[in-house]
Structures are given as C-alpha cells and as structure tokens.
C-alpha cells in the first residue's frame, strides 16, 4: 500500500485543476518524532507536519490530476520540485488544503502550480490561511526514458489510489 498523504479529493477536472484535503492528527506517529522533546534540556515536544510530507501531499494531488488527465494511461512520476515555499506550521487539528492547476501538459509530462492552505478544524468559520506554494514538474516516464521498458502495469496508480478516488466520488476512467 502506498502511503497516502491526502484524505480526500474535493475537486478534479481533467487537464485543469484539482483540490484535496488532509487532516493532521496527533495519532500520526511521525508527529511524535517531529519534533520530539528533550528532557535533558527541558525542551518541549513540538508536533509539526514535516514540510517534506506537505510536499508529498501536493505531489499526490497534482500527480492524480496529471494522471486523470490522460485517463491514467501514463505512468506519472514527480520529476522536479520547481518551487516550494512553506511559511506556516501545520499542527494537529489543522486541515491542509491543496489547490493545484496544470500550467502545461504535453505527451512528455506536465507542469503544475499549487497553493497550500491551512484551516483550523476547531474554527472552520475563519478563512483559510495560505501555508505556501508548490510548483512541480511530472514526467510521463514511458515517453521520456527512451529505451527503458516499464511494462504495461501502471505501478504509479495502485489500489490505494483507486480507494481514495472512489471515496472521493471520482469515477475511474472508462477502459
């Protein structure tokens, strides 16, 4: 099972845009180590969603958008982080929203531009705050790694992605 860093897709338009949310929970074990306290210095623990995993959440949201745009025929792989600026901490009880749009798409891959927003689950009436921006480039690897064979099986979009899509009300593309 691939480790998913988004809980639900809330918007998905092929070739155009997607949104997804992720609820941050203190039950997630990695928050216990990031950052753990140090009793010898008296430093308290500070559970913060790691920026790298926020980036992964955007990569999954954008990757699904790019994959969906080709009817999931292409193997979509994150190729380059063009820009990632994150300026707020996502803490337990926060909801992260990823908004992403395709800026360019070609047979070889796609470029996406995304915004990350932060809401407090305890105060959903307040407007979300901008957590950052993440721009990415994806490769359709079968179109780029000339001479390499990756087979027919699309290992990028596995069963866990289909579960996420189904739970989000997204119909799989017709075969």
């Amino acid at each position: 099972m691939r480790w998913l860093w988004i809980d639900r897709i809330t918007d998905l338009i092929a070739g155009e845009r997607a949104s997804a949310i992720k609820a941050v929970s203190l039950a997630e074990e990695h928050l216990h180590d990031h950052f753990e306290g140090d009793p010898s210095t008296g430093r308290s623990a500070l559970p913060v969603m790691p920026g790298t995993l926020i980036l992964e959440g955007m990569a999954q949201t954008a990757g699904i958008l790019v994959g969906y745009s080709s009817g999931f025929r292409e193997k979509v792989v994150l190729a380059k982080v063009v820009r990632a600026d994150l300026s707020l901490d996502a803490l337990p009880g926060h909801v992260i929203r990823y908004d992403v749009r395709i800026t360019q798409i070609s047979p070889q891959g796609a470029a996406t531009a995304g915004d990350v927003w932060l809401s407090d689950a305890a105060d959903l009436n307040s407007p979300p705050r901008r957590l950052g921006t993440i721009d990415l480039i994806f490769s359709h690897i079968d179109q780029n790694m000339a001479g390499s064979e990756f087979g027919d099986h699309n290992f990028v979009f596995g069963e866990s992605f289909w579960t996420l899509l189904r739970l989000s009300g997204v119909q799989p593309p017709s075969a």
């Binding site: 190729a79 380059k80 063009v82 800026t103 360019q104 070609s106 070889q108 891959g109 470029a111 480039i137 490769s139 780029n144």
Partner: peptide, 14 residues
C-alpha cells in the same frame, strides 16, 4: 540534468 530539459521546454513555451 535530463529532466531540466522538460522544464526548459515548458518555460520557453510560456
């Protein structure tokens, strides 16, 4: 690197 060529191509188009 090889993947930069796709980035450069996209940015030239824009």
């Amino acid at each position: 690197e090889s993947i930069d060529f796709l980035d450069i191509q996209f940015q030239l188009e824009q």
